[in-house]
């Protein structure tokens, strides 16, 4: 019995996760960041929020119309954060690979900061007047951060939501 139950439940969970992942990968704003686990181990932060959950989060933000409007149009939020512990080389190499890939795919570079052992790259994908995706990559001696926000993004709306979410710069 147990093996049947395990098979059924495992298949259910896998199918659900795969369905969401496949759905995100099809979107123009999706970016594959590649693999850094073999270098830095498991990410210290790994978040994948799919469109379904974002929609429900938006519906639950009725008292906050800006957040509701923003979340309604988002299709996915992904973030991977690795501890670099001073070893920035592999992360910077990965950042460069992704940057080259984004440029080949007509993503627009917005902000690029390069200093010794530290780099920040921000790209966005634009279709007409609307953004389809946003990528933020930041590497320094403490951590490597890869953020991908997928969906229709209104930057000013996002700024308003950040104010209301009371986002602190210091973690």
């Amino acid at each position: 019995m147990n093996k049947w139950m395990i098979a059924v439940l495992t298949a259910t969970l896998s199918l659900s996760a795969m369905a969401q992942q496949d759905e995100l990968e099809e979107l123009p704003g999706y970016v594959e960041f590649g693999e850094l686990k073999s270098v830095y181990g498991e990410p210290k932060v790994m978040i994948n929020i799919g469109g379904t959950l974002l929609n429900f989060m938006g519906a639950a933000s009725k008292h906050d119309p800006e957040a509701a409007a923003l979340l309604k149009n988002l299709q996915g939020v992904r973030i991977n954060v690795y501890s670099t512990e001073g070893q920035t080389g592999p992360a910077l190499e990965q950042l460069t690979k992704v940057k080259n890939m984004l440029q080949e795919q007509d993503w627009e570079p917005i902000v690029q900061v390069r200093e010794t052992g530290e780099e920040v790259q921000i790209f966005m994908k634009v279709d007409g007047e609307a953004m389809q995706g946003l990528v933020v990559m930041a590497v320094d001696g403490d951590e490597a951060v890869f953020i991908n926000i997928i969906g229709m993004i209104d930057p000013s709306q996002l700024a308003e939501v950040m104010e209301q979410f009371d986002v602190a710069v210091d973690l």
């Binding site: 939020v77 920040v120 930041a138 953020i147 979410f165 710069v169």
Partner: peptide, 20 residues
């Protein structure tokens, strides 16, 4: 939990901003 995760993502966005 999704809201907390979203907030954490925005926090990392804000940190990237302070660097740029």
């Amino acid at each position: 939990q999704g809201r907390r995760d979203f907030n954490l993502t925005l926090t990392y966005l804000a940190r990237a901003s302070s660097r740029t």
